[in-house]
């Protein structure tokens, strides 16, 4: 394990990049980064063929540190750029890394449409229930009643459930993991990246500096440990009553279906369209019209 960690560190981190990273000590983003690299390593994907795109926020700094084709885009728009990359060069493996605000507030529309479109892209969403980088404002996943810098009286709105949203929007593969269950997360990411179709992994993470501190959830260790209690495997959750599931969430694969991928469907259209030469036909008619006019 130690040897493998060293191999991954040497192979995939950008050593010419100005480390240290921007994340606070104890942030879950580093665990996600490690997990993502282990998944890519396990799948033996050539580095030249991997594109990692992100939006804006703490989580979205992740691609900067890793040695792939990396794309740090505008807030909420990672999936739109990823769609362009994937359509222009379908052979590339395209992965996006976003935060909860990034993917489901400002980028919410792109998120549901990417899922509906079922393009072969993997969306990793690190959910820490807040906008950490801008100082801890409430996000679409901030729990009801929680305090944030924009809800000091307690939050009056209800939270999105990101993974369930992705299922409803039509993603081919949806899973949820946490930064506590790191080896489980490795497997989830591996499956998602290997999946043909739009795959989503929601990763429940901690922002002890912003969300945790304001809601007295403890430091990094306490918050990460709390996921051990609050995360319930899907099979186990099915046997539990709604009361028992109060303040808990499921982890595991929520959805894994096979359906036509729009990139591949479009390739078929390209092949058929190439055969059609309606052009000459359509314009011959117009040409004769013009000639008549000139006469």
């Amino acid at each position: 394990m130690v040897v493998e960690a060293e191999v991954i560190r040497q192979e995939y981190l950008r050593h010419d990049k100005k480390f240290p990273h921007v994340w606070c000590p104890g942030c879950g983003n580093g665990i996600v980064l490690g997990s993502l690299l282990r998944a890519i390593h396990a799948l033996e994907l050539p580095k030249d063929d991997v594109v990692v795109a992100s939006g804006i926020g703490c989580s979205s700094r992740l691609p900067t540190y890793i040695d792939f084709n990396t794309l740090h885009t505008t807030h909420g728009r990672a999936l739109t750029f990823a769609t362009g990359v994937k359509l222009a060069k379908p052979r590339l493996k395209v992965i996006t890394v976003m935060g909860d605000g990034d993917a489901t507030a400002i980028g919410g529309n792109h998120f549901i449409h990417a899922a509906r479109r079922n393009i072969n892209i993997t969306a990793i969403i690190i959910n820490n229930n807040t906008y950490g980088m801008t100082g801890g404002q409430y996000s679409p996943t901030t729990p009801y009643g929680d305090k944030s810098t924009t809800s000091l009286y307690g939050h009056v709105e209800h939270a999105f459930s990101i993974a369930e949203l992705a299922v409803t929007a039509g993603a081919s593969f949806v899973a949820r993991g946490t930064v506590y269950h790191a080896s489980h997360l490795d497997r989830m990411l591996e499956q998602a990246i290997a999946k043909r179709g739009f795959s989503v992994v929601e990763i429940v993470s901690n922002c002890h500096v912003q969300h945790g501190r304001r809601n007295k959830l403890g430091g990094a260790v306490k918050m990460i440990n709390s996921f051990k209690e609050s995360a319930v495997p899907i099979a186990k959750a099915k046997k539990m009553s709604p009361e028992d599931m109060q303040d808990k969430f499921t982890i595991g694969v929520l959805c894994d279906v096979d359906k036509p991928i729009s990139t591949e469907e479009y390739n078929r259209i390209k092949q058929e369209a190439c055969k059609i030469d309606d052009y000459e036909e359509t314009h011959k008619r117009k040409e004769t019209k013009v000639k008549r006019h000139e006469e």
Binding site: A53, L71, T73, T74, R77, L79, T80, F81, A82, T83, G84, V85, K86, L87, A88, H110
Partner: peptide
């Protein structure tokens, strides 16, 4: 966004 992605 898609236009920029494709150009890249």
């Amino acid at each position: 966004g898609a236009v920029i992605g494709a150009s890249l």
